[in-house]
Design a binder for these strands. Structure first.
Lengths: 149, 149
DNA sequence: TAAGATTGAGCAATCAATCTTC
DNA sequence: GAAGATTGATTGCTCAATCTTA
């Protein structure tokens, strides 16, 4: 038998997770829009700033994104002069994404905003609570993996 | 002084929350796409099935969405013959969104899928853990409210 | 003036298909 | 055939502006 009703606590958890994502996304993008780089693009910048020039497929697999998502992010960053696509000398299929000087600066500025934002939000939890949260989310994410995602 | 580095535990929490949202969204949409209604649209259907005919602005404020989001969802649902927009007899500015018979059926089918999905995912947690999770997310969401979201 | 609905422009994500090169 | 990158089509979300009616 398929259950026909939903434990309200499960529903609350599910809604609260969604709610947190949507609202934090809204807030961080409002804060970052003044800086000229969205959070999603800033994450790509920061990754490349840390790891050095990467291929598009490396960025996609690092974040678990579809290839399309990365191409689009790089397009935007390139349009804004923050990255360049360079041919990969070792593989003519591939391109290396490199930061421009403006991109380096943007990565630093966005990184500071990101840190400030995360500190702001998670100041609502104690270190212990935060650890608990990470543990619970770990279980949920592992379950999603089992379910095929 | 602005802090220049980020507690790895905070970063882990932040990433895990985002990860959960993206992956669960992906999974549930894959499951629901077979049924012909996306999760986001199904939520609108289910709300109206439960509450009866509503105005667009009511749907928006219930979910905390921007008006545009709701108009777009209703457009899709109407295109698929699942809802109709009817003039509100009491207010010529407003329209009442009503379910068609197909919409009623879709709401029921999607509701069953949703329950199955949430039960599947949260079976990874005990009742106690789930309660803890809801509490922690409640604190985080309250903090987001203080921060302006 | 404000409220209800819509529209325009843009971002971030998906899937599926394509093209080139390995 | 498989891997790297791109493109097309779609969804869901944001903000800001507009139009009609209250």
């Amino acid at each position: 038998m398929v259950p026909h009703n939903l434990d309200p606590e499960l529903e609350a958890a599910s809604e609260a997770l969604r709610d947190f994502y949507l609202r934090s996304h809204r807030l961080v993008d409002r804060r970052m829009s003044g800086e000229g780089v969205s959070f999603a693009r800033a994450k790509v910048l920061m990754l490349i700033a840390r790891e050095g020039a990467m291929r598009s497929t490396d960025v996609a697999s690092f974040f678990g994104y579809a290839p399309r998502t990365v191409t689009e992010a790089i397009d935007g960053l390139e349009r804004d002069g923050l990255v360049r696509r360079e041919p990969d000398p070792a593989d003519r299929r591939a391109k290396r994404i490199v930061l421009t000087p403006a991109g380096e600066a943007a990565a630093i500025a966005a990184g500071a905003l990101r840190i400030a934002f995360i500190n702001d939000v998670f100041s609502a939890l104690s270190a212990e609570e935060c650890e608990t949260l990470v543990g619970l989310l770990g279980k949920l994410n592992a379950r999603l993996g089992e379910l095929g995602g």
